[in-house]
Computed example of a mutant assay.
Amino acid sequence: MQRKRIRPAPAVVVMGVAGCGKSAVGEALAAALGAVFVEGDRLHPPENVARMASGEPLTDALREGWLDAIGLRIAGPVGDGQSVVAACSALKRSYRERLRGFCQDILFLYLEIDPATAKQRVGSRQGHFMPASLVDSQFATLERPAADENALTLDATRPIADIVADVTSLFESNS
């Protein structure tokens, strides 16, 4: 894990390409923090799901409404004083900025993974709309979080429990 000083935030977005473990890490982290969990994949409109299921990557324009839906699902509980953990690819800086438009104080956890491992994981998933053939397009779109973003880079090949323990220990040490 990249060690650096982080600001605790009321909202955490677990981000990265398909197959990096956003949902699994996000759910476990939300449980550990007593936070609301938002599954970004469930907020895709049917047209986006159909497009991806047929092997076509989403465009920036097609992602806008989806990102807005996630942003609203983050902002609601945060506005009520609750913590939120969301799973969202947030592949580009502009996507992360769009989410920050709904909640300025977001910590992004970038789950870094190599293309071969991501393809293997996506290919072995059951019942998910994203085919392994789209993994390369995710890497092509990916803009890793920059140093000026409130973000941590984590090794997505580590066990989920270890990732969650590392993140929660950072929160505890910054409280």
Rank of each mutant, 00 (worst) to 15 (best):
V36K: 12
R96T: 02
G40S: 11
G71H: 12
V78K: 00
C88F: 03
I70V: 14
F108H: 01
F108W: 07
A116S: 14
G71D: 12
V12C: 11
V85W: 00
A87T: 04
F37T: 08
I106N: 06
R96M: 06
L107C: 01
L91F: 00
G55K: 12
A61W: 08
A50D: 14
F102K: 11
H44V: 04
E97L: 14
P131K: 11
R121Y: 02
R63Y: 00
I74K: 02
Q104V: 08
Y110K: 07
V38S: 02
V36E: 14
L99C: 07
G123K: 09
P57L: 09
A61E: 15
L62E: 15
N48R: 02
A35W: 01
C103Q: 15
K22V: 00
K92S: 08
M52R: 05
K92P: 02
T59N: 11
C103V: 13
I74G: 00
R42E: 15
Y110S: 07
E47V: 10
C88N: 09
A132S: 15
A86L: 08
I106K: 05
G101C: 10
E56R: 15
A53Y: 10
R42C: 12
A18W: 00
A24L: 09
L67T: 00
D41H: 06
Q126E: 14
K92D: 10
R93I: 06
A53N: 11
V122N: 05
A132W: 08
Q120M: 14
E39M: 11
E64I: 09
K119Y: 06
M130T: 01
G21V: 02
L62G: 13
A132Y: 06
A24W: 05
G16V: 04
L134E: 07
L58F: 01
E112P: 07
V38D: 05
G19K: 03
D114T: 10
M130A: 00
P115R: 13
M130C: 06
F129V: 04
D68W: 00
A87F: 01
P77H: 05
V36D: 12
A90I: 02
E64T: 13
V17L: 09
L109E: 12
V49S: 10
P131F: 05
P115W: 10
D60L: 06
M52H: 04
G81P: 01
K92F: 04
V38N: 03
A61P: 10
A132L: 10
V49M: 11
D136A: 14
P77Q: 08
L134R: 03
A132D: 13
I113Q: 06
S133N: 11
W66S: 03
K119V: 08
G123C: 09
L33R: 15
V85A: 04
S94M: 14
F102H: 15
R98K: 15
E39K: 12
S89I: 01
V12E: 10
A18C: 15
V49Q: 10
H128A: 07
A28L: 10
G81T: 04
M52P: 00
D41F: 04
A31Q: 15
R42M: 14
C103D: 07
G16M: 09
G26V: 06
V13F: 02
A31P: 08
V38I: 12
L91C: 01
R98Y: 09
V78E: 05
V36L: 07
G21M: 04
I113F: 04
S94H: 14
